[in-house]
Amino acid sequence: MDITEFQAIYIMWLRQMKRFIRSRGRLIGTIVQPLFFLVILGSGLRSAVMPGMVGDDYLAFLAPGIIAMAILFSSMFTGISVLWDKQFGFLQEVLVAPVSRFSIIIGRTLGGATIALIQGFIILFIAFGLGVPIAGISGLLLTIVFMVLSAFTAVGFGLVIASKMENFQGFQLIMNLIIMPLLFLSSAFFPIATNPDMPSIVSQLSFFNPLFFMVDGIRGSLTGLNNVLDPLVNLVIVIGICIFMLGLGSYLFSKYEA
C-alpha cells in the first residue's frame, strides 16, 4: 500500500469527523437517547429485582447494554450513510478516484468507529458518574476492544444494507424488524439467556444472536457482573463475527457500480 492510500484513508476519516461535528442533531440525538435510557430506566428500576439477574444493581446490568446499543446504532448509521452519498452523488466522486475500494472502506470504517467510540466513552463516563462499578484496568481495556469490534461489525452491517438498498425506505423496516428485536433479545436491557421466566426456546436462541456476544462481552469485561460467558470466549466469537461482517460489507461494496 503506498502513501496515496494512507492519505485517502485519512481524508475519508477526516470527512466523517467533520460531518459528525457539524451535525448537531446527530451529536445530540445519539447521546441523549442512551442517556435517557440509562438515567430514567437505570435509576428508576435501580432497586428492582429482575428474574435471572445476579446482585441487586440493575444500573450495573443495564450500562453495558446501553453502551453497546449506542455504539451499534452510531456505527450502523455510518455504514448506511453510504446511501446518502449515493443519493447526493458524492459516491461517484469517491469511486472514480484512483484509490482502492479497500482503502475507501477502511477510511469510512475508522471514521465510523471513532465517532462510535466517542459516544461510547461519553456514556461510559456517565455510567461511572452514576456509580456503576468497574472490574479493573485490564477489564476496561478489554471493554474498549469490544467497543471497537462492535463498531466495525456494525459499520460492516450498514455497508451490507447500503449496497443492497436503493434508498432509505427499507432502512426503517430493517431497524424495526431486525435490529430492535435482536437488541431486545441480546440481554442488553434485561436478562434473557439466564431468565427462568423466559420460554427456554427464546433463551437458547439468544446464543445465535450476534449482539448477545457483544453485550455479554462488554458486560463481562467492564463490570464482571451478570455475564453468561467468559469475556475471552465472547472475544473470540465477536472477532469472528466482525471479520465476517466487515468482509461481506467490503465485498458487496467493491462490487458496487455507480
Binding site: T4, K18, S23
Partner: peptide, 22 residues
Amino acid sequence: DPALDTELTGRENLDFHARMYG
C-alpha cells in the same frame, strides 16, 4: 448530477479531492 459534499466547504471539497488523488 452534482457530486459534492454539501456539508463541507468549497475548499474542503477540493482538499478532499486533492488528497484522494495523492
